[in-house]
Amino acid sequence: MQYLSGIDDHRTSTGLDNRKMLMWAFLGSDVMFFGTLIGTHLIYRNRNLSGPQEEILSIPITTISTFVLLMSSLAMVLALAGIQRGNMGQFRFWTAIVCIFGSIFIGFQMFEFTEFAVHYGLTPRTNLFGSTFLVMTGFHGTHVAVGILWLWSILFASYKGKIHQGNSLQVEIAGLYWHFVDIVWIVIFGVVYLIGAYGAEGRALEEVPHAARAVGIG
């Protein structure tokens, strides 16, 4: 056994940064977290004894909010690309966009929850659908909110000079988290909204948008 001297404190065995690896491990763990929530929702489908269920999901509105979240993800990579090239203006602009789009998404979700509560009388106490759906999407919304808080903090820190090209890894890690929140929503939108609500009994036909009917896919 030999002893090396002058080893760099920041050397890692794999050459990968500890913090980035931590974020990936965390995301892996979060997969189990959301997987369990979505799984719970799915196995409780169609077990309701009473009250509204999937027929009240609004696909047009959720498609828009999904689009907003997807575009925030795009803004996130553009912000990262900006700071990695040292273009702080680009970074700040796109980061602000991410936060705004994220907030719009939260707004959509609050609108949806309010609609459910006011018009359909659906709260987490109403029935199984209310419990599983609202807790699942609520946890997702909480993740989005944490992401917004995180990115605002990074944005402010960048004005104080604490975030710069040299530690763009901070932005990359926050970005990984943000994209993860996005892919969770991709799954929820596909599995819970589209597949879940497809052919749900009592779905109002008027809901088919005129545009869709016009091109003959209604």
Binding site: S29, F33, R47, R125, S131, V135
Partner: peptide, 27 residues
Amino acid sequence: PPLTIALTLLLFDRFFGTNFFDTAGAG
């Protein structure tokens, strides 16, 4: 995480009146 979720669901049932384990009332 699955335990965290299970505990959370139970916690919501106990604190906020959700129905995750309400067999009689909610099925």
